[in-house]
Each structure stands twice: as structure tokens, then as C-alpha cells.
Design a binder for these strands. Structure first.
Lengths: 213, 213, 213, 213
DNA sequence: AATGAATGAGAGTTCATTCAT
DNA sequence: TATGAATGAACTCTCATTCAT
């Protein structure tokens, strides 16, 4: 009896909290960090301003929570890939694929990642602990592995990692804006092959000649 | 007489305006968009708040003008390169070089460009007219030229362009944070060669094996 | 059966109520009126915020009750003295002694009385019904008795009463701040003798010449 | 020409500032510190909320300024008396007289002093620098002088000083509430004589027998 | 052209109080 | 009786913008 009561309450609380987090993502997505305000969150979530402070400590924490929650699944997927036993080049390919897939599936949440990246840039101190940086580091290790094993040429791994991640994001953005529903697998291949083999004709193993927008 | 007076006024006005724009860049540079306020601009420029509205319509316009002014030299350089008679691969190489050089010379102004890019992302409407987009388009045309002439493989030019620009920015950021004073020319080469020939060992014409960290 | 149940309930209710009142005094004591909040009371008392409103009508009433309860013993003592058969001068002496004793014994509760006095001042309407005023009136009557009986000179009794009470509080505060653990009896004598005989040397029956510091 | 312009502006600014300070005193007086809010100040002063922050840094500073301004004349008068060449007993008499006179002339400003005293109590740290404390110290010295010269009996000067000041305030409050327009000189005499010679009949030099409320 | 006092909408946050459970 | 999520008014403070001078 008591259990039931408690459970029902818990669900309700969760419901309100979910509404708020949904609103936060929605606003961050549509209006960016500059257009974000607690008032707007309350309006969008259909609760009173005071309610926000029942569930979250302050503005920062509410944003943190929302970003955390919406990125968690992607981050786990990507981590799984990068920590797997695949060869470095396959890892990069799978990384790109999951990245793009997630963006396609959650187009609304997309700018949240951009927000995170921007935060990482804006606050240099937090930089080294940000989610973004974690991935740069992981990719760096993958590239380094490739270099050590002779699979890749001896390049600066951290620079290559940065190039790779930004390339992926660039294509994701491009997909969003061109509203192309082009095959994700193809775009993933495009990225990893450009990075792996370059765009110059005559490079061995170039991407298929059929990829034209 | 009237002419002289008019002229003097013009110069004075120009002077105040310059002070204001300088202050805007200074603030954007040191405190970012979030730390930007009209009050701060007035204080920094040594004028009254009201004066800002004599010269500019509003906050947005004042930022626009400042960003415009401070990026103008770079944009002109880059345009010159892209509109020149060089071959597409040389153009990309020179583009990267100028880009990185400018960032190194104006490290303080750097975030201004990031700001512009972010704005471009945040406000989809402005996107297609933003300076950032202009460059994506120009690079797209360069890549397309390369594809048409058989120099590059038949890839989606706009995606490759996006990858290329983001790769350049990624390395610029990387340079900033690692505070590496590594040779710009080397980094420029790194980028264009990765894009042109990929990172896989055995690709012909790979970048020099001496590029480490 | 029903009786027992009722009784148990009564005791429980009383228990919760006591906890709350204890918490109120504790907070008033440690953080003053400005640091007082219902949330803090609930936390300190270990109950939910809503519970406070089961037992008390509102914030004002909860404070009233707590102050009332914590001052009750002192007020009873003092009333006993003032309603006794002692001579007016003895009454004043005993009054002062009990006052100071109580403050020394409950230094933490001290500000609560100050709070009450301040409230009495701030809200003129409540003034005439406040505990503070009750005492002014009682002392007034004592002084009047003294005047009527020829023991005291014919002075305005209400003014003398006010002077007397404030003098006592002043010394109590002084004791608190100087952290002097000086003899209470001495301080009580000091006050009543100053009021009774003044501070000018040569007054008959002046206070002992040994009171220093 | 420029001078005139500047002057007129100065006056206007002063005017608004005065209005605000007047409103602050008014509110502090009628509703106490607890009823004080910036919103109320703005409403009372007939200006926008933002205007308050044009002239004052924050809530604390606005209160400080108002209290300072309204007490300045009294404090100067009192300091003059206490630093004069009068004998200690005369000093106490004049002190009381000026105190009461000021309160009568500025009944509205009265609680401001109470406010200051309360602040002194509430924030022990600031205590030793508060205006209230300054006066306790000065009176302490006067009493000490009297004791040293054999004019007063050997009592604890700081306690007597506290008693004296509180006695004065007590009578001032009493005057306010009884709305008695009784002779100030008489009340001043009452206080100093009670303190100097006590209330017991038969004391030499007792206050006039005609003082009955 | 330049000023800066004034504005007022809106920011983030707190908190006494209510009410369905 | 007890809960605690929800409320909404009020709080302090910020800031882009206006306008009389």
C-alpha cells in the first residue's frame, strides 16, 4: 500500500522532471544558449517558475542535466565502439556511422552537442573534463594505435583526431541543413574514406565513384 | 569652409566609431558573447552609453559591424586565393595556410570567428548570408572544379568543403590550446595532405614522415 | 479504547509540535529573524514543510507560539515578583535580578526577547498587547505605588518604568557582549541602585564602592 | 554656458536622489527593515526600479546612505556636546536634551536610529564600528571622567553609559507613543536627574515635584 | 554629435502557502 | 496527521534602449 503510493508519486515527479528536461532541450535546440531562460523553460514545460527550483538547483544545473541526459545514449554507443577490438580504421568508420545515425534519429537534440562543444571552447578550464574532450582523447588513442601498428602514416594523432571529429560534425550539420535523407552509411563511408585515403583521384581504395549529392 | 568643417566632423565621427569597434572586439575577445554588454562597450570605449546609439542602431548591429571589420582582411586574403588561377589542390593548400597564419597573428580575435560560426548555426535564417557560408560555398566550387577536371574523385563537393573548413578550424583550435608554436606551414600541409591523400600508410604522396606532435 | 487512541494521538501531536517550536527557537537564536524561514524550520525539526501548516496557521503564528513558550517561565517569575507583597524598591531589585539571571541561564534565547521588543516597536498596533508592554505597565504600577507611598519622588511613573526596563536590557546586552561572568547579583544591584539613588557621589545609600569593571 | 548646463543637471540628479532617500527613510520608519524592499522604494519615490540602481549600488548601500544622511546632523550635535569643555554631568544633561529635541523635530526619522541600533546588535562583527557603538564609547568616557574626578561614584562606566543611552531612547519612544508634547527640557531633566540622583525620595537635588504625566 | 539619467521588461531566485495524496 | 510537489507573487538586480538637454 505504502509502496504503491510511493511509486505513484515517484512516477509523477519523474513526469514533471521529464517535461522540464524536454523543454530545456527544445529551447536550447531552437534558440540556443542566448535565447535560453528559466522563464521560457517554465512556459514551455507548462509549470510555474518556482517548480523548476523544486527539481533543480539553478540554471546551470538544469542545463547540465538536460545535456547529460540527452547525450548519454550516444556517448555510451560511441565509447563501446572505441573500446572494442576492431582495427583502428574500422573503429573510425563505426564511430562516424553511429555519430551520424544518432544525429539523424534525434535531429532535435543535435545542437545540444554543439552547445557542449561550444561550452568546452568558451571555458578553457572545464575543457579538459568536458565530454567533447573525452572523445578527442579517445580518438587520439585510436589514431595513435593505427600509427604504431603501421596502419597509418606517422602523423600527429591529436591533430588528426580533431580533424576527424570536426569532419563528422561538419557532415552531420550538412545533412541537417540540406535536409538530405541520403544514406547514412554512404556519408559515414565518405568521411572515413576521405580521412583514410584522401580525395585525390588515383588514391587506392577511393570511395565509390557514385557518391554525388 | 563648410567643406573643411564637414571633413573634420567626418574624421571625428570616424574616430569615435573606431574606438567603439575596437572596444567591441576587445570585449568579445576577452569575455566572449556572454560577457558582452553595451555598458561595457561604452566604458571600454570611453564614451557615454547613449553615444553608442548615435553610431549604431542596436546591439546586434554593433557586433555585426565589429566582426565584419575585424575579419575583413582575412576574408579578402582568402577570397583572393580562392578566386586565383591556382589549381584546386594548390588553392586548398594556400587557403589553409592563410587561415592558420591569420589565426596565429590574431589569436585574440580568434573567438570572434567562432562566434560568427556559432551565430550562423544558431539562427538558421541568417545562415545562408553569413560569412561562414560564403566560404563553404567558395570552397565547394573549388572542390567541384577539382572533381570536374578529374583531379579529385567524384565526391559530394559541399560535404568535402565542409569537412575541409572544419578540419582547418579544428587544427587552429588545437594550435591555440596546445600553445604549440609549431611551424604553420607544416600544419597547413598536414591538413591539405590528409584531405587530399588520407592518412592510410601506403597512399602515394603522403605527408612527410617527420611530422610528429 | 477510543480514549487511549485519542491520548496517544495527543501525545504524538504534542511531540511534533514541540519539535517544531524547539527548531524555531534554535533558528531565531542562531540566525535571527532575517535568517528565519519555514523551510529551515521544517528541515531543523525533521518534518515536511506541509506539516508546519497542520499545527500552525502561518509563519507569524509559529514565531509567536515559540516566543511565547520560551519566555513563559521568565514572565511567570517576573509576574510573581511584581505581584508580591514586597516594597516597590525591593520589587525593582528582584525584578532586575531575575531578569539578568534568566538571560545568563538562557543566553541563546536572548535575542528572542529582543525580537519581541523590536516587533512591539515596529508594529504600533500590536504594541499595546505585546508582552513587552505588559511589563512596562506592571512596572509602571510598581513605581506609581512607590510614588503614592512617598517612597519615590513624584515622577512620571511610565517614563521611569521604561527607563528601568531598558536599563536592565542594556546591562544584559552588555553582559553578553563583554562576556563578563561578573556576579549577577552585583549587576542587579548596580541597576536598581542607579535608578533608586543615582550615580552622583554623595547620594545617600549609594551602591558599594567595590563595583568596578 | 557649459557651467550652467552642468549645474542644472547636477541639481536634477540631486533631486531624484533626494526623493529616493526620503522614500527610504519613510519606509524604514513606517514598515521597519522587514517591510523594506526596493520595489517599495521605487513606488514611494515615484521612479522606476531600475533608477534606484543608477544612483545606488544595491540594497545595502541605499539603506546605508539614507541612515547616514538622516542621522548626520544629530551625530554632529551630540559629538560637539560630548567633546566640549562642560562638566560630565552637564554633558549628560545636554546630550539628553539634544537627543530628545532631535527626535521631536524629526519624529519620522526616529526609527532610523532604532534600525541602526538593531543592526549593531544583529551583526556583531560590525558592532564595534557602528554609530551606536561610537556613542556608547563616548558616553563611557564621559562617565569615566566623572568617576575619576570624584563627581560620580565608582561604577562600571560602560554599563552606566549603556543604561544612560537606553534610558534616553526609552523616553524618546515613550514621547512618541504617548504623543505627549510635554516640555522636552523637563524630560531631559528627568532622565539626567534619575541617572544622577535616583528616584528615591529624600535624595538631594531631586527633580521637580511637579512632573506628573 | 554627445551625454547620462531614466526607463521597464525580464533575468534568476526565494519562499510562504496550498492541496491532492 | 503527514507529506512534498507545485504554485505564484515578490524579491534583488541587469541591461538594451530612449530622450531631453
Amino acid at each position: 500500500m505504502v509502496n504503491k503510493k510511493h511509486e505513484r508519486k515517484k512516477i509523477l515527479e519523474t513526469h514533471t522532471k521529464q517535461d522540464i528536461l524536454k523543454a530545456v532541450i527544445q529551447i536550447l535546440t531552437q534558440h540556443g544558449i542566448q535565447g535560453f531562460s528559466m522563464e521560457r523553460v517554465a512556459r514551455e514545460a507548462g509549470v510555474a517558475k518556482g517548480t523548476l527550483y523544486v527539481h533543480f538547483k539553478n540554471k546551470n544545473q538544469i542545463i547540465e542535466s538536460a545535456v547529460e541526459a540527452s547525450l548519454a545514449p550516444l556517448l555510451e554507443e560511441l565509447s563501446d565502439v572505441l573500446d572494442s577490438d576492431l582495427s583502428p580504421d574500422k573503429k573510425l568508420e563505426r564511430f562516424t556511422f553511429h555519430h551520424l545515425s544518432y544525429f539523424d534519429a534525434h535531429q532535435d537534440f543535435f545542437r545540444v552537442l554543439l552547445y557542449d562543444r561550444q561550452q568546452a571552447h568558451a571555458q578553457r578550464r572545464r575543457y579538459r573534463t568536458s565530454r567533447y574532450w573525452t572523445f578527442v582523447e579517445k580518438i587520439t588513442r585510436v589514431v595513435d594505435d593505427g600509427v604504431q601498428s603501421g596502419l597509418f602514416r606517422p602523423l600527429d594523432p591529436s591533430k588528426v583526431a580533431a580533424i576527424f571529429i570536426e569532419a563528422t560534425i561538419a557532415v552531420a550539420i550538412n545533412r541537417l541543413w540540406s535536409k538530405s535523407s541520403e544514406n547514412i552509411e554512404d556519408d559515414a563511408k565518405l568521411i572515413s574514406e576521405v580521412i583514410l585515403h584522401g580525395i585525390t583521384a588515383g588514391s587506392k581504395n577511393g570511395p565509390g565513384a557514385d557518391v554525388i549529392t
